[in-house]
Design a protein around this nucleic acid. Structure first.
Lengths: 129, 129
DNA sequence: CTTTTTCTACGAAAATCTTCGTATTTTTTC
DNA sequence: GAAAAAATACGAAGATTTTCGTAGAAAAAG
């Protein structure tokens, strides 16, 4: 057994994962450049993080070439669910209803998006309880 | 001017705030005992955290008595909105719709709660798109 | 080839968050 | 009152996360 259960990513790790979910796969250079559109992160900083993430099992690395190519080892969906679940516990006593309310007020949700949410909810089948 | 833009609380700070939001106000002892229903935290650890939180402007302290009495300086609602907003940015590219979806799947939402959410959404007025 | 650039490996500093030990003061108990 | 118990103040250790500098290997440029 190597290292087992994949931890929830930290903030910086999440930033990297976001880029990789979008690109599918990328080199450190590509990730670093995408990161630097917002803030400024040193190349070796990004490299180190991605190495650590690979060790943790958050990324997969193809090192058959000199420039290693990385891709996500965890899905965006699952990660989002984990993060929401965590937030639900930490700050909402598990109440999804409150969280939904806050989500709408935290961000100014457009009427159009609101309609999509309503539709999605209408179709959503509650888990057979 | 002292310091005062109130930062988003850290995880442990959030645990303390949760207790204080519930109790309204409390001494360090009371908070520490409430914390220890779940995990185990040393008394001075809780004390120190609450002192720091007071400095940060997250708590208010009445120290007119020997046993200081603390209460929240920030509202649960506002904090929840901040946290959701943060998560929206970090992991959902700002899409409230996706977050709502994940909130439903992360937690097994009962049919009853689902109904409440639908109702709440039906009444919610979105902004002009 | 030789030089320069690009990349990975690695260790460790820096920053943040969490925990706790010790000293001191105040209150309570006997 | 004196001893014991309970509270605050403070500094610093631990743990985790983030950042970066340096060294050496591989590739690209000249």
């Amino acid at each position: 057994m190597t290292k087992h259960n994949k931890p929830i990513p930290t903030d910086r790790e999440l930033a990297i994962l976001g880029i990789l979910w979008e690109l599918g796969q990328a080199t450190v250079r590509q990730v670093n450049e995408a990161m630097n559109e917002d803030s400024t992160t040193g190349y070796t900083t990004t490299l180190k993080l991605m190495q650590i993430m690979t060790e943790k099992g958050l990324l997969l690395r193809d090192d058959s070439q000199f420039k290693h190519v990385y891709r996500p080892a965890i899905s965006e969906e699952r990660t989002q669910s984990q993060l929401v679940g965590e937030l639900l516990d930490k700050a909402f006593s598990g109440s999804a209803e409150k969280l939904v309310m806050r989500a709408l007020s935290a961000k100014k949700v457009s009427a159009k998006e609101l309609e999509k949410i309503r539709k999605m909810l209408a179709e959503y089948k509650g888990l057979e309880s």
